[in-house]
């Protein structure tokens, strides 16, 4: 099993961290994983991508994920400027943060899921940062990693002093897990 995942969002929304948390969660479950970013001039705002690979066997390539099995779109505003489905494998999965119907995204040959992640981010994190939120939908829809592994990864990401922030993020992941629909 090798799952190749591509995250789309905007710089400053934690896309790198999203991929890293996912890799850490998979690693904690004894799987092989890899996460790395590609970003522009390191300013907040422009569209960014990050990548994650999860596999049963050691991962021996470091090239960018150009033919993903799963695409996660964390910021709805990139949908109008970036072809998020570029190279997506036939029958692949798109999980988009969007307050609309999946059919409205115009992505064909893919299983498209939408969840209003912005609403959850604003409720739980009080700011439009979508990385951890979208992991909730990812867990529900793909089942590739367990909720407790992601929770553990989040707690390890924050230090002791920031435990309250870690808890907020865990709550946001859980809320998005509940809200996301598998079919």
């Amino acid at each position: 099993m090798l799952a190749e995942i591509r995250f789309h969002g905007r710089a400053g929304q934690g896309m790198v961290t999203a991929a890293e948390l996912l890799a850490a969660a998979a690693g904690a479950e004894g799987k092989y994983s890899q996460a790395f970013p590609v970003f522009g001039s390191e300013k907040r705002g422009p569209p960014v991508m990050s990548f994650c690979r999860i596999s049963d066997s050691p991962i021996t390539t470091y090239d960018q994920v150009s033919e993903p099995d799963i695409v996660v779109v964390a910021d709805p505003s990139v949908l109008s400027s970036v072809n998020v489905a570029a190279g997506l494998k036939k029958g692949g999965i798109v999980i988009a943060n969007c307050n609309c119907k999946a059919s409205e995204l115009g992505i064909t040959d893919a299983k498209v899921f939408v969840v209003d992640g912005t609403k959850i981010a604003l409720e739980h994190l009080h700011q439009p940062i979508f990385n951890t939120v979208m992991l909730g939908a990812f867990i529900k829809i793909t089942g590739l990693v367990k909720m407790e592994s992601v929770e553990k990864a989040i707690h390890e990401e924050f230090d002791e002093k920031s435990k309250a922030m870690a808890d907020e993020n865990v709550d946001a992941v859980r809320a998005c897990y509940e809200l996301a629909k598998k079919d």
Partner: peptide
Amino acid sequence: LDGFYLTHSVGQ
């Protein structure tokens, strides 16, 4: 070691 590919990647 290659910048980004290796410096910024998480793995085992």
